[in-house]
Amino acid sequence: MRLPNFGIMVAAGASLLLAVSTLHAETFGDPPTSGFGKPIAEPDLALWDIDIQTPTGKGLPAGEGTVAHGAEVFAERCEACHGEKAEGGPMYGTMVGGIGSMDKNPRVLTPGSMYPYAPILFDYVRRAMPLDAPQSLTTEEVYSVVGYIYHLNGLVEADAKVNAKTLTELKMHNRDAFIVDDRPDTKAERCMTDCQPIGTVADAQKK
């Protein structure tokens, strides 16, 4: 068993550690004086370390794909659930269109309309799709099918090369649409008598 490296931590992040120990002193009591984790080197985690920092593209692997190959991958591995040209199938609705619908009702949510950063599609397909065999595509297949879906959404040319650089540079329509949590956003009062009756969504939209 390895000894915990509390010494290194004190040197490296004394202020953070201090803040941390005050916090869990209150919530959980003293941390244990020894630990049981085993050291492992980052390279030995390569097959696990699959998340992508999507705004910067950090984590996108080397390699490249094409829209044409993506169409083949899609027909073989995705179409049964997502339908022809990703326009909706037995397991999921459309993955095409919706750009410009964000101030309409309904908003049409697709990778083209909704994703603020293009590498999101790479991250998601690589980790989660195809639903019946996740993590079974090669890097080249993921780049290709990602290119194909963005092509169907009018964001990528038919002859485009799809790789870490082009995906990171691809500007998405919904990029500036996000605001970070700023709740509480209501200020209800604890009225006890002579109150307004409980209103509905329609009441809010009327006034």
Binding site: T54, M102, M114, P116, F178, I179, D181, R183
Partner: peptide
């Protein structure tokens, strides 16, 4: 910084007026 993957942007975000989305509303 957060990865901003699908489940932090396109899903688990809340529609706000003006075509906006509120995210990390935990």
């Amino acid at each position: 910084q957060p990865d901003q993957i699908r489940g932090e942007t396109a899903r688990y975000s809340d529609p706000m007026p003006g075509g906006k989305w509120r995210q990390f509303s935990m």
